[in-house]
Structures are given as structure tokens and as C-alpha cells.
Design a protein around this nucleic acid. Structure first.
Lengths: 161, 161
DNA sequence: GCATATATGTCAATAACACTGACATATATT
DNA sequence: AATATATGTCAGTGTTATTGACATATATGC
């Protein structure tokens, strides 16, 4: 589409180094293209990427506490607050007091929020579905294996993943 | 490390839908963790994520023209300009006039820029090397297959993406 | 009850990174 | 000469993030 690059860069080093850099590059492209369409939709609503992340995770884990969301998104309370306030005010997310811990404000998508979530993730779901379908189950397993290994570090180090 | 989520969300739907959403979620985590360490290093230099992207791509494709960089990063000329100006002024990137087309300013890393590139990508390379090594060549092939399929859209549709 | 910690929310100031619009220069193409 | 391309810059704006400070409600330990 718009990546006029050959598979092998000018100073292609043979072997592993090149393989790693190619992976890094393609992860960048995949993520870039992954968020392009939702970004376009969000502008209609006056929302940004952060709103999408909140809607995605609250949709996926209903009843999530604010604290959890902060840990997942790794942003500050102040940043989340502005986004969350907007989503609540405009009727996409609602809060309910926690039952066991009443300090918590547990988060849920409203019907309107669920609709927006569907709309935002439509292209992303199709993108995954297409890639998964074309690549086949073995490749998907490999994809998930590598992706998961990149998330929290090596199983040996533990690191708290 | 900091993702206190179970593998299956509250409203787990059976089958494909759940698989897709899990993939989307893990792609988010992988990318988030992928850029965390470079982001920390960049603050030492007063640089941001955009500087890293420029350094990465100029390092990978020496002699790249500004136009190509704009297409890859999908940002505006004005946005790139600010970043590029800073990198040139501080001696990480240099420009040379194109030989065949003298309007072009072809971009190269200086020695200092190459050093910074190594430092910025060190954690990312290790992360990929670890994941690739642990997952094994079959999984890596699957990973690359799926990742590449997600980049520009279906092979059938061809062009757009 | 009191002290302290946790979960949440908000105000203010700031920065990085993107945007649009307008305009300028050098060079290439027709 | 006219037009297009490649690049650069100025001005203004907006989103998303930051840090710091402070407030409220609730939980927990003594």
C-alpha cells in the first residue's frame, strides 16, 4: 500500500540480526495498520485512542475497577480520569459501586458503549479473522506463542508476568 | 508483570470471537511492552517516540528520502520536520543531497546516531531474540505469517489495505 | 475511635506528538 | 514558461500524556 520497502534493506546483515529487525519493523507496521481505522471512527465522536482502549478493556472485562484499568493502560490516574469522565458523561460507560469494596467504582459498558465497541473493533476483528483464516491454525498458534513470549519477558526470569 | 487478568474474561464467548479478541488484547500488550524501555531511554535525550521511529527506519534503510519516511510513519511533513530538525541539529542524523534527484535530502545515521539506535533497540532485539529462541522456528514462521497478513489487508483485495 | 492506607476524583501546569493551513525554495518534468 | 515534486518552515490548535497537589469515601489495623 504505502510501504515502498523491499524485503531486504540496503545494509542487510545475514542471519539472525536481520530477522530480528524485520520482526520489529513488521510489528510496527501491523500495529500502525491495526489502529488506523478505529482512529478514523473515533474522530467522529471527538474521541481519541485512549477512549478506544478504555472501551475495549471495559467491554472485555466488565466490572473492571479503575485501578486495574490504570495498570493495564499504564497511564496516570489523571490521564484516565479525563477520558473516563467523558465516556461516562456521554453515556458509553457506567460506574457501579463495588459490592465487597465500596470504594471501588466498577466499570461497565452501556448499550450505547457496546455498540460503539462493536463499531470500533469491526475492522480489527476482520483483520485478525482474515489473517488467522488465511494463515491457518498452526501459524496462529505460532503467532500467539511468540506474541505471548514478548509480553512479560522470559519464563525463566519470572519477572512477575 | 502488571496484567492481573485471567486468560478468559468474564463474558467469555466460546470459539472464534474470543480468540480474535484475545489476539487483539495480546497485540496491545506486546506493543505496549515493546516500546516501554526505549521510551525510558528517550527521555534522557529529551526525545520522544517519533525520534525513535526515525532513527530506526533511517538506520535500517540508509539513504532513505524524507518522502519515504513520511509514507512509512504516516505523519505530516510538519510533524516529521520538527523531529528531524532536532536529530540533525544534535548530530544523530545527517542529510546528503540525492545524486539522481538533487531535490531529495537523503538521510543517514551518524556514528552517534548508530550508537543511539543500538541502545534504543537493545531491549527490543533481546525481546525478539528471546521470544524467537524460546518459541522455535515453526512458531516464528507462524508469527511472521500472521503479522504480515495483518499489514496491508487481504491478498485478494490487493491494493488498498 | 483514631491513624493510616487504598480507591477514586479533580485542579493546574506542562510536554510530546500529532494536526491543518499557508507559504517558500530548489529542482524536475513537460 | 508552466506545472509538479521534494523539502522546509511559520503559526495556531488539539489529544494524550506527564507531574504535583489536594480532596473524599471507604477499608483496615490498633
Amino acid at each position: 500500500m504505502d510501504t515502498p520497502l523491499t524485503d531486504q534493506p540496503d545494509d542487510a546483515e545475514p542471519g539472525a540480526e536481520e530477522e530480528l529487525r524485520a520482526g520489529m519493523e513488521h510489528l510496527f507496521f501491523a500495529y500502525r495498520d491495526f489502529i488506523a481505522q478505529p482512529d478514523r471512527i473515533l474522530t467522529e465522536y471527538g474521541f481519541g485512542r485512549a477512549h478506544h482502549r478504555v472501551i475495549f478493556f471495559v467491554g472485555r472485562y466488565p466490572g473492571m475497577a479503575v485501578r486495574q484499568l490504570l495498570e493495564i493502560l499504564q497511564i496516570t490516574k489523571q490521564s484516565l480520569s479525563r477520558v473516563l469522565r467523558q465516556l461516562i458523561r456521554e453515556g458509553y460507560v457506567e460506574q457501579r459501586q463495588g459490592e465487597t469494596d465500596r470504594r471501588q467504582r466498577r466499570l461497565y459498558l452501556t448499550r450505547q458503549g457496546t455498540e460503539l465497541e462493536r463499531r470500533l473493533s469491526e475492522d480489527q476483528r476482520q483483520r485478525f479473522a482474515r489473517a488467522y483464516g488465511t494463515a491457518g491454525p498452526d501459524a496462529v498458534r505460532g503467532f500467539r506463542t511468540v506474541l505471548d513470549l514478548m509480553i512479560s519477558g522470559p519464563p525463566k526470569g519470572g519477572g512477575g508476568g
